[in-house]
Amino acid sequence: MKKMWAGAVLAAGLTFSVAQAGGAAPVVGGAQVQPATTESVAATLRAAGYRVTVNPAQPDEDPSLSVVTPSGQDVDVWLSQCRAQVCDRVSAGLSWEAGDEPDLELLNEWNGNYYTQAYVYDDSYHLDSSMILRGGYTRAALVRWMELLLEDGGDFEAELG
Rank of each mutant, 00 (worst) to 15 (best):
W78G: 03
A12L: 10
Y114K: 12
A25K: 11
F16G: 12
L127E: 00
V54L: 13
W145R: 12
A98G: 08
L127Q: 00
N111W: 03
M1K: 07
M146D: 02
V52T: 03
R144V: 10
L65R: 02
S71C: 08
S95T: 11
Y121N: 15
A36S: 13
L150K: 02
D88M: 07
E101M: 08
S71N: 09
L106Y: 01
M131Y: 08
V90Y: 00
S64E: 09
P26Q: 14
K3L: 15
E159M: 01
T15P: 04
L133D: 01
E105A: 06
T116A: 15
K3T: 14
L10I: 10
L142W: 02
A36K: 09
L79C: 07
N108Q: 07
S64C: 03
P26S: 10
V77T: 12
A12Q: 12
E151F: 01
V143R: 13
S71P: 06
D100H: 10
Y119N: 03
A21W: 03
L79I: 07
M4N: 09
Q58H: 04
P102A: 05
S40V: 10
V18P: 11
A24S: 14
I132W: 12
L133K: 01
G154C: 01
M1P: 13
W110E: 01
Y125N: 00
E147W: 05
A43K: 15
S129T: 13
Q73E: 11
Y50R: 11
V28K: 09
A57H: 08
Q81V: 08
P102W: 04
L160G: 01
A57V: 08
D74I: 03
N55K: 04
E105C: 14
